[in-house]
Amino acid sequence: LGPKYVGLWDFKSRTDEELSFRAGDVFHVARKEEQWWWATLLDEAGGAVAQGYVPHNYLAERE
């Protein structure tokens, strides 16, 4: 699936296409579209919880 990303700060969605998340949440990014990335929010087991657009500057690649 490629690298995983972690949320740096809490983010509250403003549209139906955006995905709310908390700092520390883990994502798989499917598409990078300039300022907004289409991402899947993952649970602790790595299963998909939700999908939506997230601001790229709120995520960091997980080491």
Rank of each mutant, 00 (worst) to 15 (best):
residue 61 E to W: 07
residue 54 V to H: 05
residue 31 R to E: 07
residue 41 L to D: 00
residue 2 G to Q: 14
residue 52 G to F: 04
residue 8 L to H: 03
residue 44 E to M: 08
residue 21 F to I: 05
residue 43 D to L: 07
residue 63 E to R: 09
residue 10 D to S: 07
residue 53 Y to E: 01
residue 21 F to E: 00
residue 13 S to N: 07
residue 58 Y to D: 02
residue 63 E to D: 14
residue 51 Q to H: 14
residue 63 E to I: 13
residue 47 G to A: 14
residue 61 E to S: 08
residue 2 G to Y: 15
residue 25 D to E: 03
residue 41 L to I: 06
residue 46 G to Y: 05
residue 11 F to P: 02
residue 37 W to L: 05
residue 61 E to H: 09
residue 48 A to T: 10
residue 35 Q to N: 14
residue 47 G to W: 09
residue 5 Y to E: 00
residue 4 K to R: 11
residue 61 E to Q: 11
residue 11 F to V: 02
residue 33 E to K: 07
residue 41 L to A: 00
residue 50 A to H: 04
residue 6 V to C: 09
residue 47 G to H: 15
residue 35 Q to L: 14
residue 28 H to P: 02
residue 8 L to K: 10
residue 8 L to T: 02
residue 21 F to Y: 00
residue 33 E to M: 09
residue 10 D to R: 04
residue 16 D to H: 11
residue 4 K to H: 14
residue 30 A to H: 15
residue 55 P to S: 04
residue 34 E to Y: 09
residue 25 D to W: 05
residue 57 N to Q: 10
residue 29 V to I: 10
residue 51 Q to I: 09
residue 56 H to M: 13
residue 49 V to T: 07
residue 50 A to E: 06
residue 56 H to S: 15
residue 42 L to H: 03
residue 25 D to S: 07
residue 40 T to C: 11
residue 18 E to A: 09
residue 18 E to I: 10
residue 62 R to M: 15
residue 32 K to Y: 08
residue 15 T to W: 08
residue 16 D to G: 10
residue 16 D to Q: 12
residue 63 E to Y: 11
residue 20 S to A: 05
residue 40 T to A: 06
residue 39 A to T: 03
residue 13 S to E: 02
residue 20 S to T: 10
residue 2 G to V: 14
residue 1 L to W: 13
residue 56 H to F: 13
residue 16 D to E: 13
residue 33 E to I: 07
residue 13 S to F: 02
residue 61 E to L: 15
residue 18 E to L: 10
residue 40 T to V: 15
residue 7 G to F: 05
residue 30 A to D: 14
residue 14 R to T: 15
residue 16 D to L: 09
residue 56 H to Y: 14
residue 28 H to K: 07
residue 36 W to I: 07
residue 12 K to Q: 15
residue 1 L to M: 13
residue 11 F to Q: 02
residue 30 A to W: 15
residue 55 P to E: 08
residue 29 V to K: 00
residue 30 A to T: 15
residue 47 G to K: 15
residue 14 R to G: 12
residue 53 Y to L: 08
residue 48 A to M: 11
residue 40 T to E: 09
residue 53 Y to C: 05
residue 43 D to I: 05
residue 5 Y to A: 01
residue 45 A to S: 13
residue 9 W to N: 05
residue 51 Q to A: 12
residue 55 P to W: 07
residue 32 K to L: 04
residue 20 S to V: 05
residue 50 A to N: 07
residue 37 W to M: 03
residue 2 G to C: 14
residue 8 L to C: 09
residue 34 E to V: 10
residue 16 D to P: 15
residue 62 R to K: 14
residue 62 R to A: 15
residue 39 A to G: 03
residue 39 A to N: 00
residue 59 L to V: 04
residue 52 G to V: 03
residue 37 W to T: 01
residue 62 R to G: 11
residue 25 D to Q: 07
residue 19 L to H: 01
residue 63 E to F: 11
residue 6 V to W: 07
residue 38 W to A: 01
residue 25 D to L: 06
residue 58 Y to M: 08
residue 7 G to L: 07
residue 62 R to W: 15
residue 28 H to W: 12
residue 34 E to G: 15
residue 44 E to W: 06
residue 52 G to A: 04
residue 21 F to T: 00
residue 4 K to P: 07
residue 1 L to R: 10
residue 41 L to V: 04
residue 51 Q to L: 05
residue 46 G to K: 04
residue 6 V to E: 06
residue 31 R to C: 11
residue 53 Y to V: 02
residue 46 G to A: 03
residue 28 H to I: 15
residue 40 T to F: 12
residue 49 V to R: 07
residue 20 S to K: 02
residue 5 Y to L: 02
residue 13 S to A: 15
residue 54 V to W: 03
residue 43 D to E: 03
residue 41 L to G: 00
residue 33 E to N: 08
residue 54 V to F: 02
residue 5 Y to F: 09
residue 28 H to Q: 11
residue 28 H to Y: 15
residue 38 W to F: 13
residue 37 W to C: 03
residue 45 A to G: 11
residue 47 G to D: 14
residue 7 G to N: 01
residue 29 V to L: 02
residue 44 E to D: 12
residue 38 W to T: 01
residue 23 A to N: 04
residue 26 V to L: 14
residue 41 L to R: 06
residue 60 A to C: 10
residue 23 A to D: 03
residue 27 F to L: 11
residue 43 D to P: 00
residue 32 K to F: 08
residue 45 A to Y: 14
residue 25 D to T: 06
residue 59 L to H: 04
residue 12 K to W: 13
residue 10 D to Q: 03
residue 16 D to S: 12
residue 24 G to V: 01
residue 56 H to A: 15
residue 50 A to R: 11
residue 10 D to H: 06
residue 20 S to M: 03
residue 4 K to T: 15
residue 34 E to T: 11
residue 27 F to A: 00
residue 49 V to P: 01
residue 42 L to S: 02
residue 24 G to K: 04
residue 20 S to Y: 04
residue 41 L to S: 00
residue 58 Y to R: 01
residue 56 H to G: 15
residue 50 A to M: 08
residue 62 R to N: 10
residue 32 K to P: 03
residue 13 S to M: 06
residue 15 T to C: 13
residue 34 E to W: 06
residue 15 T to A: 10
residue 25 D to C: 08
residue 1 L to T: 12
residue 45 A to W: 14
residue 48 A to R: 08
residue 40 T to H: 09
residue 5 Y to D: 00
residue 57 N to V: 05
residue 42 L to R: 00
residue 4 K to W: 14
residue 56 H to N: 11
residue 36 W to P: 00
residue 61 E to D: 08
residue 14 R to M: 11
residue 10 D to P: 06
residue 2 G to N: 12
residue 9 W to I: 09
residue 29 V to C: 05
residue 17 E to V: 12
residue 33 E to F: 11
residue 28 H to G: 02
residue 33 E to H: 10
residue 53 Y to R: 10
residue 5 Y to Q: 04
residue 7 G to M: 05
residue 53 Y to G: 03
residue 61 E to Y: 11
residue 47 G to S: 14
residue 17 E to T: 12
residue 1 L to G: 12
residue 36 W to N: 06
residue 28 H to V: 14
residue 57 N to P: 01
residue 36 W to L: 10
residue 36 W to C: 05
residue 18 E to H: 12
residue 49 V to F: 05
residue 31 R to V: 11
residue 54 V to A: 01
residue 37 W to I: 03
residue 35 Q to C: 14
residue 48 A to I: 14
residue 52 G to K: 05
residue 16 D to T: 10
residue 50 A to Y: 05
residue 50 A to V: 04
residue 8 L to R: 07
residue 32 K to E: 03
residue 10 D to E: 06
residue 31 R to M: 08
residue 5 Y to G: 00
residue 5 Y to P: 00
residue 3 P to V: 14
residue 20 S to I: 04
residue 52 G to E: 02
residue 29 V to P: 03
residue 25 D to Y: 07
residue 52 G to W: 07
residue 48 A to G: 08
residue 38 W to G: 00
residue 24 G to W: 04
residue 36 W to S: 08
residue 14 R to E: 13
residue 22 R to H: 13
residue 7 G to A: 15
residue 63 E to N: 12
residue 10 D to I: 08
residue 3 P to M: 11
residue 2 G to L: 13
residue 34 E to S: 13
residue 21 F to W: 02
residue 46 G to I: 12
residue 28 H to F: 15
residue 61 E to A: 10
residue 21 F to M: 02
residue 26 V to K: 08
residue 35 Q to V: 11
residue 56 H to I: 09
residue 58 Y to F: 11
residue 42 L to Y: 07
residue 42 L to D: 01
residue 52 G to D: 01
residue 24 G to H: 02
residue 58 Y to W: 06
residue 20 S to R: 01
residue 60 A to P: 02
residue 27 F to T: 01
residue 49 V to Y: 06
residue 41 L to E: 00
residue 55 P to Q: 05
residue 45 A to I: 09
residue 24 G to T: 02
residue 56 H to W: 12
residue 17 E to F: 14
residue 53 Y to F: 09
residue 38 W to D: 00
residue 21 F to K: 00
residue 30 A to V: 15
residue 25 D to N: 07
residue 10 D to K: 04
residue 6 V to I: 12
residue 2 G to W: 15
residue 33 E to Y: 11
residue 59 L to N: 04
residue 45 A to V: 11
residue 38 W to C: 07
residue 61 E to G: 04
residue 52 G to S: 00
residue 27 F to N: 02
residue 26 V to W: 11
residue 8 L to P: 01
residue 8 L to F: 02
residue 8 L to W: 06
residue 14 R to Q: 12
residue 24 G to Y: 03
residue 42 L to K: 01
residue 55 P to R: 07
residue 3 P to Q: 13
residue 31 R to H: 10
residue 62 R to F: 15
residue 40 T to I: 15
residue 36 W to H: 07
residue 7 G to H: 03
residue 59 L to P: 01
residue 12 K to T: 15
residue 61 E to C: 10
residue 18 E to Y: 12
residue 16 D to I: 08
residue 6 V to M: 06
residue 13 S to K: 11
residue 48 A to S: 10
residue 41 L to Y: 02
residue 4 K to V: 15
residue 55 P to K: 05
residue 56 H to K: 14
residue 15 T to D: 08
residue 47 G to V: 14
residue 26 V to I: 13
residue 44 E to T: 09
residue 7 G to W: 06
residue 40 T to R: 02
residue 61 E to P: 14
residue 31 R to N: 08
residue 1 L to C: 13
residue 53 Y to H: 05
residue 45 A to R: 14
residue 14 R to Y: 09
residue 14 R to A: 13
residue 41 L to K: 10
residue 33 E to A: 07
residue 22 R to T: 10
residue 37 W to P: 00
residue 24 G to C: 07
residue 17 E to A: 11
residue 46 G to S: 05
residue 4 K to E: 14
residue 26 V to Y: 11
residue 40 T to M: 11
residue 17 E to D: 13
residue 53 Y to K: 12
residue 9 W to F: 13
residue 1 L to Q: 14
residue 61 E to F: 08
residue 18 E to Q: 15
residue 10 D to N: 07
residue 43 D to Q: 05
residue 19 L to R: 02
residue 13 S to T: 02
residue 21 F to P: 01
residue 46 G to D: 08
residue 35 Q to D: 13
residue 63 E to C: 12
residue 27 F to G: 01
residue 37 W to N: 01
residue 14 R to N: 13
residue 49 V to S: 06
residue 10 D to W: 06
residue 25 D to R: 01
residue 54 V to Y: 03
residue 1 L to P: 13
residue 22 R to S: 13
residue 25 D to K: 02
residue 17 E to L: 14
residue 52 G to R: 03
residue 32 K to H: 05
residue 53 Y to M: 09
residue 3 P to N: 11
residue 20 S to H: 03
residue 37 W to Y: 08
residue 3 P to G: 10
residue 61 E to T: 09
